[in-house]
Design a protein around this nucleic acid. Sequence first.
DNA 1: CGATGGTTTGAGATATATCAAACCTCGTGG
DNA 2: CCACGAGGTTTGATATATCTCAAACCATCG
Lengths: 232, 232
Amino acid sequence: MSACDTCVVRNRAICASLDGDELKALNAIGRHRTLEPGESLMWEGDDSVLVANVIDGVLKLSTGTEDGREQIVGVVYPSDFIGRPFGATTGHGVTALTDARVCVFSRKDFDAFAREHPALEHKLLQRTLAELDRTRRWMLLLGRKSAGEKVASFLLEMSERLAPPGCSTFSEQTLTRFSLPFSRQQVADVLGLTIETVSRQFTRLKADGLIDLPSRREVVILSRDGLAAEAG
Amino acid sequence: MSACDTCVVRNRAICASLDGDELKALNAIGRHRTLEPGESLMWEGDDSVLVANVIDGVLKLSTGTEDGREQIVGVVYPSDFIGRPFGATTGHGVTALTDARVCVFSRKDFDAFAREHPALEHKLLQRTLAELDRTRRWMLLLGRKSAGEKVASFLLEMSERLAPPGCSTFSEQTLTRFSLPFSRQQVADVLGLTIETVSRQFTRLKADGLIDLPSRREVVILSRDGLAAEAG
DNA sequence: CGATGGTTTGAGATATATCAAACCTCGTGG
DNA sequence: CCACGAGGTTTGATATATCTCAAACCATCG
């Protein structure tokens, strides 16, 4: 019995496109790895040697400038795919925000396997297209939204993305209370702001009664409509 | 003889993955369309009914907020792919910046065709992955760079992307003189700035001797190194 | 308890936006 | 041919959102 049989993301990750034998073959070229918060799986500019599936935890994808400015360009959750198949280098670092478990493959092995399994490539294509859509929507936020709009948008997105995988395909799950996997600085790096500006917006939204902040990482959404209005 | 046989982007677009018969089949479900500057092929939020290949010209992909702020989230050139296959809606509008020719397919027809031709899907996957990389790099610019850095980065990118397709696979072609397919307002919409700020940065770069501006749309790069330094 | 790292709050500086006017360029029609 | 108008662009003066620098604050952990 292969490790995949007990995998919790088995039916949501790109592996869902494979049957029993194929899964066994994929399992043979992959291995598990755990990461602690702050630990990196790859760095910006690295040769693309690894790809992976997220089993559990939240990881950030980030790039930076020479002089140390950082921008988080993506956030991945369980069942998401990591890394750059069919490419020479990695455009961004990948770092765990929480304790995380991933299923790692040599990029070359994965490439070869994928080329022989069109259904897998199709799943990967779907995922990549969806990620591109999401990324482009984020560009509107980065380029054109005010600090207040950015933070409100961010909290709404979090309440959706952190929701446990919906049983129903339709009803979009959203959370009213959740624990941020980001420090204030990391929120700033997602939104293209400074930590101070993020902090001020949090306290303003709290003062306005739209959210509550029981602890540093905890967020309670008191008025989803109000937040949506702030999100622009 | 199908129209594809004489297509100038035949060997660079995703069609390059197809043999003669396949190409004929694809040709049967596609049709040509020309667009004038400012004309749109699809709008943000539309049902995803079309996909297309760019044959000639430059088009922008853009989203906006309720209150009219706009962000250009991508720019496509000859041989690039347009639209959202395998998805219900279009996340952004597509509008011609120059006179343009595109090869249009019904999304459903294309989806069906693609699913039967893994090599085509593979090409599409490669393209989508590359576009995602590029988009993420742009996020660093939007979130963390100053106006001066943004404009310098933009001009360097233009000098690469507007270069005619390199004969050699290696030597990265770049142009020293080119004509921008963007108005000042559109440059602002790419960079997340106002038109006035863009204009001021152009004149500053000119005053600093890094570029020359023979006419409104024309740009000459006098010091690529200097620009690269400004780009951060 | 006191040290430490992250967070909040405050006061001031500054890059960019905003508002407004002048300036080109180019096509049109008198 | 020139005057005119219209769009786009540049330049100027001012406002303001966000950044920067600095201090106070607060949980957590030894």
